[in-house]
């Protein structure tokens, strides 16, 4: 029957779709981090030193990390409060290998608005996979 070749083509086409492109080894696994310090809800004073200690690892290779500390008190509903100087800190560092421990000291300025701050850590691997961790800390007199 003259239709048969066409039906075969159909099956072939579907078969190609399902099996033709086998999965290669691709890296979509996110890097991981364990943050030892600061701890959640830890309280600091303006002018004090803050220790950042963390262990980063990835299945293929680490690329970089970024620390972003910003004021987190905007979440209450007081909109037009008096504007003190909010502290904002950004630091980026390069990483290499599958595992690396980072330990650094961050100086908290003396004259800043006190309250809740968000300590965010961004971590990327060489493929562009990214992990984010956020820790709430408090800066009080």
């Amino acid at each position: 029957m003259k239709l048969k070749p066409i039906l075969y083509l159909f099956v072939l086409f579907l078969g190609f779709g399902i099996t033709g492109c086998s999965d290669d080894e691709i890296d979509t696994e996110k890097p991981t981090m364990t943050v030892y310090s600061p701890g959640a809800e830890q309280v600091f004073r303006p002018g004090q030193n803050l220790n950042f200690i963390a262990e980063f690892s990835d299945n293929v290779g680490l690329n970089a990390f970024k620390i972003d500390i910003h004021y987190g008190g905007d979440h209450d509903h007081k909109k037009h409060e008096e504007e003190d100087e909010k502290w904002h800190y950004v630091h980026t560092g390069e990483l290499s290998g599958r595992s690396e421990e980072v330990s650094m000291e961050i100086d908290i300025p003396g004259e800043i608005k006190t309250g809740e701050y968000h300590f965010m850590i961004f971590l990327t691997d060489v493929s562009g996979n990214e992990s984010i961790a956020a820790i709430t800390i408090n800066i009080e007199h």
Binding site: V90, M120, G128
Partner: peptide, 28 residues
């Protein structure tokens, strides 16, 4: 039965660069 096959010569997408933004609050 409706199979399809498309080839894009320049598919446009947001590619993660692995490099961090200097802007506050943003990751890579």
């Amino acid at each position: 039965i409706s199979p399809f096959l498309s080839y894009f010569s320049n598919y446009l997408f947001l590619r993660p660069s692995g490099n961090f933004s200097f802007l506050p609050g943003a990751g890579q």
